[in-house]
Amino acid sequence: MAVFTAVGLGDLTQWIKQFPLGNAQALKGIASGIENSNFFLTTERGEYVLTIFENLGFDQLPFYLNLMRHLAVRGIPVPAPVANDQGELVVPLQGKPAAIVSKLEGRSQMDPQPAHCAAVGAMLARMHVAGRDFPMQQPNLRGIDWWNGTTPAVLPCLDDANAHLLRAEMHFQGAFHGCAPYAALPRGPVHADLFRNNVMFVGEQLTGFFDFYFAGCDTWLFDVAVTVNDWCIDLATGEIDVARARAMLDAYHAERPFTADEHASWQPMLRAAALRFWLSRLYDFHQPREAEMLTPHDPTHFERILRERIATPAPELFHE
Protein backbone atom coordinates (compact mmCIF):
# COMPACT_ATOMS: atom_id res chain seq x y z
CA MET A 1 0.00 0.00 0.00
CA ALA A 2 1.83 3.03 -1.30
CA VAL A 3 0.80 5.99 -3.45
CA PHE A 4 1.68 5.61 -7.12
CA THR A 5 -1.34 7.54 -8.43
CA ALA A 6 -1.92 10.90 -6.79
CA VAL A 7 -5.56 11.70 -5.99
CA GLY A 8 -6.96 14.73 -4.20
CA LEU A 9 -10.27 15.30 -2.52
CA GLY A 10 -11.42 17.38 -5.48
CA ASP A 11 -10.94 14.42 -7.80
CA LEU A 12 -13.66 12.56 -5.87
CA THR A 13 -16.37 15.25 -5.93
CA GLN A 14 -18.28 13.76 -8.86
CA TRP A 15 -16.80 10.26 -8.79
CA ILE A 16 -18.06 9.44 -5.27
CA LYS A 17 -21.68 10.16 -6.22
CA GLN A 18 -22.06 6.72 -7.80
CA PHE A 19 -21.64 5.14 -4.32
CA PRO A 20 -24.19 5.22 -1.47
CA LEU A 21 -21.70 6.99 0.78
CA GLY A 22 -22.56 10.66 0.60
CA ASN A 23 -19.91 13.29 -0.10
CA ALA A 24 -16.20 12.70 0.38
CA GLN A 25 -14.94 14.74 3.35
CA ALA A 26 -11.28 13.72 3.78
CA LEU A 27 -8.63 11.68 1.97
CA LYS A 28 -5.23 10.59 3.28
CA GLY A 29 -2.61 8.47 1.54
CA ILE A 30 -1.43 5.25 3.23
CA ALA A 31 2.34 4.82 3.18
CA SER A 32 2.85 1.11 3.97
CA GLY A 33 3.11 -1.60 1.28
CA ILE A 34 4.33 -1.54 -2.29
CA GLU A 35 1.65 -2.72 -4.74
CA ASN A 36 -1.30 -0.29 -4.97
CA SER A 37 -2.26 3.30 -4.19
CA ASN A 38 -4.28 3.33 -0.98
CA PHE A 39 -6.11 6.07 0.89
CA PHE A 40 -8.15 6.42 4.04
CA LEU A 41 -11.43 7.92 2.84
CA THR A 42 -13.89 9.72 5.09
CA THR A 43 -17.42 10.24 3.76
CA GLU A 44 -20.70 11.36 5.20
CA ARG A 45 -21.46 7.68 5.92
CA GLY A 46 -18.22 6.76 7.69
CA GLU A 47 -14.63 5.59 7.26
CA TYR A 48 -13.48 3.55 4.25
CA VAL A 49 -10.37 2.56 2.31
CA LEU A 50 -10.02 3.58 -1.34
CA THR A 51 -7.61 1.51 -3.44
CA ILE A 52 -6.36 2.32 -6.94
CA PHE A 53 -4.85 -0.81 -8.48
CA GLU A 54 -1.52 -0.34 -10.21
CA ASN A 55 -0.84 -3.86 -11.51
CA LEU A 56 -4.15 -5.72 -11.45
CA GLY A 57 -6.63 -5.27 -14.28
CA PHE A 58 -10.40 -5.00 -14.39
CA ASP A 59 -10.60 -8.67 -15.37
CA GLN A 60 -8.62 -9.89 -12.33
CA LEU A 61 -10.14 -7.78 -9.57
CA PRO A 62 -13.59 -9.42 -9.33
CA PHE A 63 -11.91 -12.52 -7.85
CA TYR A 64 -10.45 -10.60 -4.90
CA LEU A 65 -13.45 -8.41 -4.19
CA ASN A 66 -16.01 -11.18 -4.54
CA LEU A 67 -13.87 -13.40 -2.30
CA MET A 68 -13.91 -10.69 0.38
CA ARG A 69 -17.68 -10.37 0.04
CA HIS A 70 -18.08 -14.19 0.20
CA LEU A 71 -16.02 -14.39 3.40
CA ALA A 72 -17.74 -11.42 5.02
CA VAL A 73 -21.17 -13.01 4.46
CA ARG A 74 -19.89 -16.14 6.23
CA GLY A 75 -18.76 -14.24 9.30
CA ILE A 76 -15.07 -13.80 8.57
CA PRO A 77 -14.02 -10.27 9.60
CA VAL A 78 -12.72 -8.81 6.33
CA PRO A 79 -13.31 -5.44 4.60
CA ALA A 80 -16.64 -5.40 2.80
CA PRO A 81 -16.51 -4.03 -0.77
CA VAL A 82 -18.95 -1.23 -1.57
CA ALA A 83 -20.87 -1.52 -4.86
CA ASN A 84 -21.77 1.52 -6.95
CA ASP A 85 -25.27 2.29 -8.22
CA GLN A 86 -24.78 -0.22 -11.06
CA GLY A 87 -23.79 -3.01 -8.67
CA GLU A 88 -20.12 -2.82 -9.73
CA LEU A 89 -17.32 -3.37 -7.22
CA VAL A 90 -14.55 -2.12 -9.53
CA VAL A 91 -14.82 1.27 -11.25
CA PRO A 92 -12.35 3.50 -13.10
CA LEU A 93 -10.59 6.37 -11.30
CA GLN A 94 -7.77 8.34 -12.93
CA GLY A 95 -7.94 5.78 -15.74
CA LYS A 96 -7.21 2.85 -13.42
CA PRO A 97 -9.35 0.27 -11.60
CA ALA A 98 -10.46 1.39 -8.15
CA ALA A 99 -12.55 0.02 -5.29
CA ILE A 100 -13.88 1.14 -1.93
CA VAL A 101 -14.04 -1.20 1.06
CA SER A 102 -15.07 -0.76 4.69
CA LYS A 103 -12.36 0.19 7.18
CA LEU A 104 -11.62 -2.25 9.98
CA GLU A 105 -11.38 -1.20 13.60
CA GLY A 106 -8.17 -1.53 15.59
CA ARG A 107 -4.52 -1.49 14.70
CA SER A 108 -1.86 -3.91 13.56
CA GLN A 109 -0.06 -5.86 16.26
CA MET A 110 3.63 -5.59 15.37
CA ASP A 111 4.88 -7.30 18.55
CA PRO A 112 2.65 -10.38 18.64
CA GLN A 113 2.43 -12.66 21.64
CA PRO A 114 1.17 -16.28 21.66
CA ALA A 115 -2.40 -15.11 22.28
CA HIS A 116 -2.33 -12.97 19.12
CA CYS A 117 -0.83 -15.84 17.13
CA ALA A 118 -3.51 -18.23 18.38
CA ALA A 119 -6.23 -15.79 17.29
CA VAL A 120 -4.67 -15.50 13.82
CA GLY A 121 -4.31 -19.28 13.48
CA ALA A 122 -7.92 -19.94 14.44
CA MET A 123 -9.28 -17.25 12.12
CA LEU A 124 -7.08 -18.41 9.24
CA ALA A 125 -8.52 -21.92 9.56
CA ARG A 126 -12.06 -20.53 9.65
CA MET A 127 -11.30 -18.44 6.58
CA HIS A 128 -10.08 -21.50 4.69
CA VAL A 129 -13.20 -23.47 5.61
CA ALA A 130 -15.47 -20.54 4.70
CA GLY A 131 -13.83 -20.26 1.28
CA ARG A 132 -14.30 -23.89 0.28
CA ASP A 133 -17.50 -23.17 -1.66
CA PHE A 134 -16.28 -19.95 -3.29
CA PRO A 135 -17.09 -20.58 -6.97
CA MET A 136 -14.46 -18.41 -8.69
CA GLN A 137 -11.01 -19.74 -9.59
CA GLN A 138 -7.72 -17.90 -9.94
CA PRO A 139 -4.25 -19.31 -9.32
CA ASN A 140 -1.83 -17.78 -6.87
CA LEU A 141 -0.19 -15.27 -9.20
CA ARG A 142 3.00 -15.36 -7.12
CA GLY A 143 3.25 -19.14 -7.16
CA ILE A 144 5.92 -21.35 -8.68
CA ASP A 145 5.26 -20.24 -12.26
CA TRP A 146 6.05 -16.67 -11.19
CA TRP A 147 9.15 -17.87 -9.32
CA ASN A 148 10.39 -19.59 -12.49
CA GLY A 149 9.85 -16.43 -14.52
CA THR A 150 11.36 -14.07 -11.95
CA THR A 151 14.50 -16.03 -11.05
CA PRO A 152 16.35 -15.24 -14.32
CA ALA A 153 15.58 -11.52 -13.82
CA VAL A 154 17.18 -11.32 -10.38
CA LEU A 155 20.04 -13.83 -10.66
CA PRO A 156 22.41 -11.36 -12.38
CA CYS A 157 21.98 -8.98 -9.44
CA LEU A 158 23.11 -11.49 -6.79
CA ASP A 159 26.52 -12.35 -5.41
CA ASP A 160 27.79 -15.89 -5.86
CA ALA A 161 26.54 -17.17 -2.51
CA ASN A 162 22.99 -15.92 -2.98
CA ALA A 163 22.89 -16.97 -6.63
CA HIS A 164 23.82 -20.49 -5.51
CA LEU A 165 21.15 -20.40 -2.80
CA LEU A 166 18.47 -19.30 -5.25
CA ARG A 167 19.36 -21.90 -7.87
CA ALA A 168 19.51 -24.69 -5.28
CA GLU A 169 16.21 -23.74 -3.68
CA MET A 170 14.44 -23.46 -7.02
CA HIS A 171 15.64 -26.98 -7.83
CA PHE A 172 14.43 -28.23 -4.44
CA GLN A 173 11.03 -26.56 -4.82
CA GLY A 174 10.58 -27.91 -8.32
CA ALA A 175 10.96 -31.44 -6.96
CA PHE A 176 8.71 -30.73 -3.97
CA HIS A 177 5.94 -29.25 -6.11
CA GLY A 178 6.04 -32.38 -8.25
CA CYS A 179 5.77 -34.93 -5.45
CA ALA A 180 2.69 -36.96 -4.47
CA PRO A 181 2.16 -35.46 -0.97
CA TYR A 182 2.15 -31.96 -2.46
CA ALA A 183 -0.43 -32.99 -5.07
CA ALA A 184 -2.69 -34.30 -2.29
CA LEU A 185 -2.65 -31.13 -0.17
CA PRO A 186 -6.04 -29.52 0.55
CA ARG A 187 -6.58 -26.40 -1.54
CA GLY A 188 -8.84 -23.42 -1.90
CA PRO A 189 -8.72 -19.63 -1.73
CA VAL A 190 -5.79 -18.33 0.33
CA HIS A 191 -4.81 -14.87 1.52
CA ALA A 192 -1.13 -15.54 0.63
CA ASP A 193 0.15 -12.35 2.34
CA LEU A 194 -1.11 -12.51 5.93
CA PHE A 195 1.69 -10.51 7.54
CA ARG A 196 1.40 -8.65 10.84
CA ASN A 197 0.43 -5.42 9.10
CA ASN A 198 -2.52 -7.12 7.35
CA VAL A 199 -4.38 -8.06 10.55
CA MET A 200 -6.18 -5.74 12.96
CA PHE A 201 -6.53 -6.14 16.73
CA VAL A 202 -8.18 -4.31 19.58
CA GLY A 203 -6.11 -5.58 22.49
CA GLU A 204 -6.01 -9.36 22.04
CA GLN A 205 -9.29 -9.35 20.06
CA LEU A 206 -8.75 -9.96 16.36
CA THR A 207 -10.95 -7.55 14.41
CA GLY A 208 -10.09 -8.45 10.84
CA PHE A 209 -7.90 -9.60 7.97
CA PHE A 210 -7.35 -7.23 5.06
CA ASP A 211 -5.32 -6.60 1.87
CA PHE A 212 -6.48 -9.64 -0.12
CA TYR A 213 -4.89 -8.50 -3.38
CA PHE A 214 -2.36 -11.35 -3.47
CA ALA A 215 -5.09 -13.93 -2.83
CA GLY A 216 -5.57 -16.89 -5.13
CA CYS A 217 -6.30 -20.59 -5.12
CA ASP A 218 -3.41 -22.55 -3.66
CA THR A 219 -2.68 -25.02 -0.89
CA TRP A 220 -3.95 -23.97 2.51
CA LEU A 221 -0.61 -25.10 3.92
CA PHE A 222 1.17 -22.40 1.90
CA ASP A 223 -1.03 -19.80 3.60
CA VAL A 224 -0.13 -21.22 7.02
CA ALA A 225 3.59 -21.21 6.16
CA VAL A 226 3.52 -17.58 4.98
CA THR A 227 1.79 -16.59 8.21
CA VAL A 228 4.13 -18.51 10.53
CA ASN A 229 7.17 -17.08 8.73
CA ASP A 230 6.07 -13.58 9.72
CA TRP A 231 4.12 -13.86 12.98
CA CYS A 232 6.18 -16.50 14.74
CA ILE A 233 9.80 -15.47 14.22
CA ASP A 234 12.53 -13.42 15.78
CA LEU A 235 12.84 -10.59 13.26
CA ALA A 236 16.58 -10.16 13.76
CA THR A 237 17.52 -13.78 13.08
CA GLY A 238 14.55 -15.37 11.28
CA GLU A 239 14.46 -18.13 13.91
CA ILE A 240 11.08 -19.62 14.83
CA ASP A 241 9.67 -18.59 18.20
CA VAL A 242 8.38 -21.96 19.37
CA ALA A 243 5.77 -20.61 21.79
CA ARG A 244 4.17 -18.39 19.16
CA ALA A 245 4.36 -21.05 16.44
CA ARG A 246 2.85 -23.69 18.72
CA ALA A 247 0.01 -21.33 19.67
CA MET A 248 -0.79 -20.56 16.03
CA LEU A 249 -0.57 -24.14 14.76
CA ASP A 250 -2.56 -25.64 17.63
CA ALA A 251 -5.32 -23.03 17.23
CA TYR A 252 -5.49 -23.68 13.48
CA HIS A 253 -5.51 -27.46 13.98
CA ALA A 254 -8.39 -27.18 16.46
CA GLU A 255 -10.54 -25.47 13.78
CA ARG A 256 -9.41 -27.51 10.76
CA PRO A 257 -7.24 -30.52 11.53
CA PHE A 258 -4.10 -30.81 9.43
CA THR A 259 -3.81 -33.88 7.21
CA ALA A 260 -0.99 -36.41 7.07
CA ASP A 261 0.12 -35.02 3.69
CA GLU A 262 0.26 -31.54 5.19
CA HIS A 263 2.37 -32.88 8.06
CA ALA A 264 4.78 -34.47 5.58
CA SER A 265 4.99 -31.27 3.51
CA TRP A 266 5.42 -28.76 6.32
CA GLN A 267 9.18 -28.20 6.32
CA PRO A 268 9.54 -27.76 2.53
CA MET A 269 6.45 -25.52 2.50
CA LEU A 270 8.02 -23.17 5.04
CA ARG A 271 10.98 -22.92 2.66
CA ALA A 272 8.61 -22.27 -0.25
CA ALA A 273 6.94 -19.44 1.63
CA ALA A 274 10.31 -17.87 2.45
CA LEU A 275 11.48 -18.22 -1.15
CA ARG A 276 8.35 -16.54 -2.52
CA PHE A 277 8.94 -13.38 -0.48
CA TRP A 278 12.71 -13.36 -0.94
CA LEU A 279 12.14 -13.44 -4.69
CA SER A 280 9.51 -10.71 -4.66
CA ARG A 281 11.66 -8.45 -2.49
CA LEU A 282 14.67 -9.06 -4.71
CA TYR A 283 12.60 -8.11 -7.73
CA ASP A 284 11.18 -4.97 -6.12
CA PHE A 285 14.62 -3.94 -4.85
CA HIS A 286 16.45 -4.40 -8.15
CA GLN A 287 13.55 -3.39 -10.43
CA PRO A 288 12.12 -0.43 -8.47
CA ARG A 289 9.06 1.57 -9.46
CA GLU A 290 8.49 5.22 -8.69
CA ALA A 291 5.88 6.02 -6.05
CA GLU A 292 5.22 8.61 -3.40
CA MET A 293 6.17 7.30 0.05
CA LEU A 294 7.55 4.02 -1.35
CA THR A 295 10.54 2.32 0.28
CA PRO A 296 11.27 -1.21 -1.02
CA HIS A 297 11.52 -3.92 1.63
CA ASP A 298 14.95 -5.32 2.43
CA PRO A 299 15.44 -8.66 0.61
CA THR A 300 17.99 -9.90 3.16
CA HIS A 301 15.21 -10.41 5.73
CA PHE A 302 13.75 -13.32 3.77
CA GLU A 303 17.17 -14.55 2.72
CA ARG A 304 17.86 -15.05 6.46
CA ILE A 305 14.52 -16.79 6.94
CA LEU A 306 15.10 -19.12 4.00
CA ARG A 307 18.59 -20.07 5.21
CA GLU A 308 17.21 -20.68 8.71
CA ARG A 309 14.37 -22.89 7.40
CA ILE A 310 16.90 -24.95 5.45
CA ALA A 311 19.24 -25.30 8.45
CA THR A 312 16.77 -25.79 11.32
CA PRO A 313 13.51 -27.78 11.31
CA ALA A 314 10.53 -25.82 12.59
CA PRO A 315 7.99 -27.14 15.12
CA GLU A 316 5.78 -29.76 13.52
CA LEU A 317 2.16 -29.05 12.56
CA PHE A 318 0.76 -31.33 15.23
CA HIS A 319 1.87 -33.95 17.74
CA GLU A 320 1.66 -37.46 16.31
Rank of each mutant, 00 (worst) to 15 (best):
L65T: 04
D234K: 05
K17S: 15
L282E: 02
M123N: 04
H301K: 14
G75S: 08
M110C: 06
T300F: 02
F201V: 00
R281K: 03
D218T: 11
P186A: 06
Q60M: 15
H301F: 15
R187N: 11
L104M: 10
H164E: 15
D211Q: 10
L71I: 02
F302T: 01
Q287N: 15
R142C: 11
Q25T: 15
I30D: 06
L27N: 09
W146D: 14
H286T: 11
R126G: 11
P20Q: 07
G149D: 14
D211T: 06
R246F: 07
D211V: 05
V199H: 09
A291E: 05
D223S: 02
Q109K: 06
A125F: 06
E44H: 04
S102M: 01
V90I: 13
H297E: 14
R246S: 13
G8K: 12
F19M: 07
W220A: 14
V73S: 14
A31Y: 05
L165R: 02
G57Q: 14
R281A: 01
L206S: 01
P257E: 13
T5F: 09
F209I: 04
I305H: 01
R74E: 13
L275E: 09
A260Q: 12
T259F: 03
P112Y: 01
L249H: 01
V91S: 12
D145C: 01
L165S: 00
G95A: 10
H164S: 14
A175T: 14
F210E: 13
A254I: 00
Q173N: 05
L27P: 13
L61P: 13
E308H: 11
G87Y: 08
V199Q: 04
T13W: 05
H297R: 12
S265P: 12
M68G: 10
P313Y: 08
A243I: 00
P139V: 01
K28Y: 12
G10W: 12
Y283P: 07
V226N: 01
L71W: 00
N23Q: 15
H286V: 04
L221P: 08
T237N: 04
A72H: 15
V199K: 02
Q60R: 15
A215N: 08
F134Q: 06
M123Q: 13
D298A: 05
I233D: 04
L89A: 07
P189H: 07
M1H: 14
S108E: 14
